[in-house]
């Protein structure tokens, strides 16, 4: 019984996902936001980097990268904490 409910729920969610994918904007035609055009235009004069993605990751959005490094550090600490308690 609960299997059939789960199957129905899964089919509903999957149907929504597929419908959303089909009904989305056409592929290859994203909305031209000012932010992306700014990054592509000014990553060379402002950051002097050829790679706009690196310019965003390390300069315009450095805070995100700092948080990401913190998450990585926290995860490794958690793995060490969990696994070391088993054997020691």
């Amino acid at each position: 019984m609960s299997r059939w409910v789960a199957l129905a729920a899964f089919l509903l969610v999957a149907g929504f996902l597929l419908f959303g994918a089909v009904a989305l904007r056409p592929f290859g035609d994203p909305p031209r936001t000012e932010m992306d055009q700014y990054f592509n235009r000014y990553s060379q004069p402002e950051v002097a980097a050829n790679n706009a993605v690196t310019a965003i990751v390390f300069d315009y959005r450095g805070y995100d990268t700092l948080g990401e490094a913190t998450v990585l550090f926290t995860a490794v600490t958690g793995v060490a904490l969990i696994l070391r308690r088993l054997r020691a």
Partner: peptide, 18 residues
């Protein structure tokens, strides 16, 4: 690119070690 290569090295060591 200023501080970008230095930050790349820092993050690279961090990810390698992590």
């Amino acid at each position: 690119a200023g501080t970008l290569p230095l930050m790349n090295w820092a993050v690279g060591f961090k990810v390698l070690a992590g």
